[in-house]
């Protein structure tokens, strides 16, 4: 039954239970912290990313080889993106945006392997990432500009009589950012994985019916292949979108008056 259940792939299972804060000592009370399959893949993602970049740059060649070129391209890709949206002042956040992009991209891509856990399919993870972005934006914005950071809500060049309408809209849009940022990534990954699992489930169920079933299983099989390709694309695009939006929000922290 778990074989074709499209939800089972999202189940978190404990590998090592670490500690519990609070609660009355009974099962399920308090906050239980464990090393789970989700945490395992986060660690794998960090190790992969770091190993790739360090391996790529191991020779420090003047004329790069393939690995080094790939590493340099990922570097310049994010650097150019951040510079174009947040200016050269925003480049102080380059390691942050790069880590964000790498963490989401590698998480999504790892999720495309069968039996691998996709940590970006959990709303709490994407929300945690989005809140990190928003907290960095807000804290840096206030630290850098003080109360002038509130100019963010009153775009320059807007006539005074429109401000009563614009300011609430801007505030709501600012407050909804962590939600939209996290739900966009979570929703895309979750929906893709469920669709993929449903179609491959059809293949298995129909294939069990014999010769005619094999014929019928051909259609969902083709769909599953096509959706796999689409999901690889979505994985990359969503990581890029996450990084672009992070850059744009950071631009607000650097230049609050638009």
């Amino acid at each position: 039954m778990a074989g074709t259940d499209p939800i089972h792939q999202f189940v978190i299972s404990d590998i090592v239970e670490l500690f519990t804060i609070g609660g009355d000592g009974t099962e399920g009370s308090g906050l239980t912290f464990s090393f789970t399959n989700s945490g395992l893949f986060m660690v794998v993602s960090v190790v992969l990313t770091t190993t790739f970049l360090l391996f790529a740059s191991r020779n420090r060649k003047l004329v790069p080889d393939r690995w080094q070129l790939a590493g340099e391209m990922s570097y310049t890709f994010i650097a150019n993106m951040l510079r174009s949206s947040a200016g050269s002042e925003g480049m102080r956040f380059f390691p942050f945006v790069f880590s964000m992009f790498a963490f989401v991209l590698v998480g999504n891509m790892l999720g495309m392997f069968p039996y691998f856990f996709t940590y970006t399919s959990h709303i709490i993870v994407t929300f945690g990432l989005a809140m990190t972005v928003i907290l960095v934006v807000t804290i840096y914005g206030f630290a850098r500009h003080g109360l002038k950071f509130f100019k963010l809500f009153a775009p320059s060049g807007v006539p005074a009589y429109v401000l009563p309408i614009v300011i609430p809209i801007e505030i709501v849009s600012f407050l909804s950012r962590p939600i939209s940022l996290s739900v966009r990534l979570f929703g895309n990954v979750l929906a893709g994985h469920i669709t993929l699992k449903v179609f491959t489930g059809f293949v298995v169920s129909l294939g069990a019916l014999g010769a005619l079933g094999w014929l019928g299983a051909l259609l969902p099989m083709i769909m599953a292949v096509a959706i796999t390709a689409l999901e690889v694309l979505v994985s990359a695009v969503q990581a890029y979108v996450f990084a672009v939006l992070t850059s744009m929000y950071l631009n607000d922290a650097v230049h609050p008056s638009h």
């Binding site: 239980t32 912290f33 945490g39 986060m42 942050f96 880590s99 945690g128």
Partner: peptide
């Protein structure tokens, strides 16, 4: 709690390494 804990640990580690 577990996910947030490991998110903080791994993302922090990734940020430092990067």
């Amino acid at each position: 709690p577990s996910q947030l804990l490991w998110l903080a640990i791994t993302f922090g580690a990734l940020y430092l390494l990067m």
